[in-house]
């Protein structure tokens, strides 16, 4: 259902983009240096596939962990920040402030402080995908579902856990969409981090390929990133759907 649709949609987009590049290449009679030919791309693909695939998996792993961290963080801040109390607005203000700094400016500091290992990549991935998540979570959590909450409120049964549960359940679709969307951001964040400073992952490999002006490698990397991301996002959507269904079936 959702999963295979995501994958074939990605295939269509990728093939169209590559076909477009080839069209320009042959239309303008450009050399393989400017735009690699199909044979070149194919050879690069078969040669680099396993190496790049493990790079992408490496990046993906960091992105997924980063995303999970930011989901928890966003839920935490979103739930605390949903109330109009002092601590609520303080948490919200702090959360917004951290995000006001562009990650490109923060990244060097992070790498200097934490080195160019996995922790830096993780932190940057989490920071990049955290903000949109937080905005949605705060939005969802501070919007009362009066038609459901009224009864609990007037009968004195409302607890914060129940309030969170009601609002999350009623906005499950929105939450799933945002979480799936933030996967792209986490991945992009990790790649940017690797590109800037890390010693592993597909972002690092892309940087090396760029050093060597090797567009064929970039195309293969993009393909692997895209397909992995599609599968992951599809899975997230399926999980969201199953949670909603399972929750509803209890």
């Amino acid at each position: 259902m959702l999963l295979h649709r995501r994958i074939y949609q990605f295939f269509i987009i990728y093939l169209l983009a590559v076909a477009f590049l080839f069209l320009i290449k042959y239309g303008l009679d450009l050399s393989d240096y400017v735009i690699p030919g199909p044979v070149d791309v194919w050879h690069t693909g078969t040669r680099e596939f396993s190496r790049y695939f493990s790079d992408v998996m490496n990046t993906m792993m960091v992105a997924v962990i980063g995303q999970v961290i930011s989901i928890f963080l966003a839920l935490l801040v979103g739930i605390t920040g949903r109330q109009a109390t002092w601590i609520g607005s303080f948490t919200k203000a702090a959360a917004y402030n951290v995000q006001a700094y562009p990650i490109v400016a923060l990244a060097p500091i992070i790498f200097i402080l934490l080195g160019d290992g996995i922790i830096s990549r993780l932190l940057i991935a989490a920071m990049i995908c955290y903000f949109p998540l937080l905005l949605s979570v705060i939005g969802i959590m501070s919007e009362p579902i009066s038609d459901i909450e009224h009864f609990y409120r007037v009968t004195g049964r409302m607890r914060w856990q129940l309030e969170v549960k009601i609002r999350a359940f009623e906005n499950m679709n929105k939450l799933t969409t945002v979480v799936a969307g933030s996967a792209t951001l986490a991945m992009a964040g990790t790649i940017v981090a690797e590109f800037i400073a890390a010693n592993a992952g597909i972002g690092y490999s892309i940087r090396i390929a760029l050093f060597q002006s090797d567009l064929a490698k970039i195309l293969i990397a993009l393909f692997l990133i895209g397909i992995t991301l599609s599968v992951y996002q599809g899975l997230l959507e399926v999980i969201g759907y199953l949670i909603e269904k399972g929750w509803a079936a209890k």
């Binding site: 050399s31 393989d32 240096y33 400017v34 690699p36 070149d40 060597q212 002006s213 090797d214």
Partner: peptide, 12 residues
């Protein structure tokens, strides 16, 4: 190295 790579890929 850019030049050599380019000519090896057919750039003129």
């Amino acid at each position: 190295d850019q030049v050599i790579r380019a000519v090896s890929k057919g750039a003129t």
